[in-house]
């Protein structure tokens, strides 16, 4: 289990690193998505119970996984998808205006 949390931390930091260092807009969006998926993994992880079954309380069951984080994860996925969509739409607009999606080139074009 510890190992899974470690993966979450690595993914989140990786996403943050990509956003901070890359100049390509698409790569920045990817970085955001990676960091977001790390949090969704974390949500699913904290709801996990060792040996738990599907959270349907019916007939014989001993332990079930916590259903609330799963619902939250779904919501978070939807929100993340819509944000990614808005980001991509903006990227298309920027590409139409400047013909490039590299931040440094855009900066040069603006200074001219």
């Amino acid at each position: 289990m510890r190992f899974a949390y470690l993966i979450v931390v690595i993914l989140f930091c990786q996403g943050l690193y990509i956003i901070l260092t890359k100049s390509n807009l698409i790569k920045m969006i990817m970085g955001f998505s990676i960091a977001e998926s790390a949090l969704i993994m974390l949500l699913v992880l904290i709801g996990y119970r060792e040996g738990g079954t599907v959270p349907i309380i019916y007939r014989d069951f001993s332990t079930v996984v916590d259903p609330i984080p799963q619902a939250l994860a779904l919501t978070a996925i939807v929100i993340g998808a819509s944000i990614t969509a808005v980001m991509l739409a903006f990227t298309i607009k920027i590409h139409k205006k400047y013909g490039t999606i590299d931040l440094n080139e855009i900066k040069e074009l603006r200074n001219q």
Binding site: L25, V86, F90, I94, K97
Partner: peptide, 13 residues
Amino acid sequence: VEGPFRYLMIGSF
């Protein structure tokens, strides 16, 4: 779009 894009990036993070 650059200003709003920066807003979007910082805001969503």
